Amino acid sequence: MKLLSKTVTTLAGALLLLTSSLGALADWELDGQRSTVQFMSVKNASVAELHHFRALTGGISDTGAAQVALDLDSVETLVPIRNQRMRELLFETVRFPAAMLRAEVPPSLTKLPVGETRDTSIEVEVDLHGTTQSYLAEVLVTRLNDGGLQVVISEPIVVKAADFGLDGGIEILREVAGLKSISTAVPVSGQLVFTPPG
C-alpha cells in the first residue's frame, strides 16, 4: 500500500464510471438499503459463516437490461482484519474494485400486478476478477405494495472460486489465517429491490 493516493484515485475513478453507467440505464433504480447479496464460506470443513456486501448500485433499463454492481471493498464478514484480507488478498480490489451482475428481465416481470409473485429462471452473467461466467438463477419476483420490484434468489447459486481465478487467493487466506481448509465452492444468495421509474 505504498502508493495509497494512487490506489484511492484509481478506485474512486473506477467506481465513478460504474455509477455513471448504471445511472444512465436505471429507469428502475436499485434500492441499496433494502437489497443484499450474501455468500457463505466454510472453514476447517465444518464452520460456516455468512458474509455480505454493504454497497450495491444498479438498475433496470426500459428495455429490461439489468445491472447490479457490488463494491468489493464493502465486503462485510464482521471481522475487520478478515475484511481487509479479503479485499487485498482475495478480491484484489485495487485492480478489480467491483463485481458486475447482468441479466435480461422480461417485460412481463416488470409489469406484474401489485402483490403478485412469479417463480422463474433468469440467466445471470457475473463479471468478477476479470472473468465472466453465466449462471441460471431460480428467482422469486414480487411486485411490492409501494410499486417496487423484489427479486429473491430462491436457490443459492454455487460459485466456484477457480472459475474466476480466486482459488489462489483463497489458499493465501488459508495460510495467513492458519486454517486447515477454506471452501472453494461458495453458495451465493440475495434479495434485490428496485424502485419504479418516476
Rank of each mutant, 00 (worst) to 15 (best):
E116T: 15
E123Y: 05
D127T: 05
K111I: 00
I122D: 08
R95N: 15
M86H: 08
E175K: 14
L78V: 13
E138V: 03
L109D: 04
S134F: 07
G147L: 08
L89S: 07
E175P: 03
T120K: 02
R82G: 05
L136N: 09
R143M: 01
V141D: 01
P156I: 12
L78T: 15
A137K: 03
G147V: 09
E104F: 06
T110A: 04
R143P: 09
A137I: 03
L128R: 06
V151R: 04
I81V: 15
Q150M: 15
H129Y: 13
F91V: 10
S134W: 04
N83M: 08
I170H: 04
I170P: 01
V124G: 02
R85T: 09
A103V: 02
R87A: 10
T131C: 01
L112I: 10
L136I: 10
G148A: 11
L149E: 05
P113H: 12
G148R: 03
Y135Q: 02
L149P: 08
R143D: 01
D127N: 06
P106F: 14
R85G: 06
V158P: 06
R174F: 00
Y135G: 01
V124I: 15
V152F: 11
L136F: 04
V126G: 01
G168K: 07
V94W: 08
A162C: 00
F96M: 00
M100C: 02
E104M: 08
G165W: 13
N145T: 13
E175N: 12
